[in-house]
Design a binder for these strands. Structure first.
Length: 264
DNA sequence: GTAAATGTTCGGGC
DNA sequence: AGCCCGAACATTTA
């Protein structure tokens, strides 16, 4: 599922466990979600430590534990986090479970495109400190956006918006939403965008991120009425602005919904 | 049975 | 080196 706001929602699902000690961990060691870590470290390092805080950057999650332990979670296509009762019994896709006195914190991931990694150290892991500015960060200015676009003029705009090194948190539906609201056709080459279009793109990137966090991020509800999101999932949808049929097309390997009558 | 799914990563060609 | 594209990853659901 998760893009920026859904990831924020899942981050909060472990809030009930903040401040509580991890007593035990249960995990499916052999699963692909542990491909970039040593899964034996979880049982060695986490029990006895309190969960102290949680952070999100784009689609990435980081949980801190007392005494220098850090858990990075990426949700991939199907990852979810939730808090479950203390007597919870893990099922097939519940690959990582942190057992606390009053509850279990569960990471579920059926397709296993997500991952969980453990780090130690006084500071967050290096990769976390190197992440590029988030779209809602003050550092993400219109000038900063222009610089990104100048360097990637040969890209198709839809594909570029999915690049997490440039637009952290944007995923398939948010990219379509931003382009629809900015009235830019998804297959356009970046170098062909004019200054007015770039200004719209900048404005709508901020707007879609902010509004998505206010809606989806809070309770996993739908984004605002009138957005493309409401119509994009299946064939036969109509543009909320023009009422004309939406087009569905494979762009950069992803199904893209857009409104030819509205986007140029 | 087949196609498609809200994500990332790798390798090849330029 | 850096950019761009397409395939691959694993599983469920329509």
């Amino acid at each position: 599922m998760p893009e920026l706001a859904e990831v924020e929602y899942f981050r909060k699902q472990w809030d009930p466990g903040l401040g509580d000690t991890v007593r035990e961990v249960a995990l499916h060691e052999e699963k692909r979600v542990f491909r970039n870590t040593d899964p034996t470290l979880f049982a060695d390092d986490l029990p006895g430590r309190r969960l102290t805080d949680s952070f999100r950057h784009g689609k990435q999650l980081l949980f801190s534990f007392e005494d220098r332990a850090w858990l990075h979670i990426s949700l991939g296509m199907t990852g979810q986090l939730r808090a479950a009762p203390a007597d919870f019994e893990p099922e097939k896709h519940d690959h990582l479970v942190l057992l606390q006195k009053s509850r279990c914190l569960v990471f579920t991931c059926s397709r296993m495109f997500g991952q969980a990694r453990l780090f130690t150290g006084a500071e967050p892991p290096d990769f976390w400190q190197m992440l590029p500015p988030e779209i809602l960060d003050r550092k993400f200015t219109e000038k900063f956006l222009r610089k990104i676009l100048e360097n990637r003029g040969g890209s198709v705009i839809k594909s570029l918006l999915l690049d997490q090194e440039k637009f952290p948190g944007i995923g398939n539906w948010m990219a379509d939403e931003v382009l629809w609201q900015a009235r830019i056709a998804p297959h356009r080459r970046v170098a062909d965008l004019d200054a007015a279009e770039i200004h719209q793109l900048y404005f709508k990137l901020k707007h879609v991120c902010r509004k998505a966090l206010e809606t989806v991020g809070v309770n996993h509800g739908d984004p605002p009425r009138g957005w493309l999101f409401q119509k994009r999932w299946k064939n036969g949808g109509h543009c909320p602005k023009t009422g004309k049929p939406l087009k569905r097309q494979d762009i950069g390997g992803r199904t893209t919904a857009w409104s030819p009558a509205w986007q140029r």
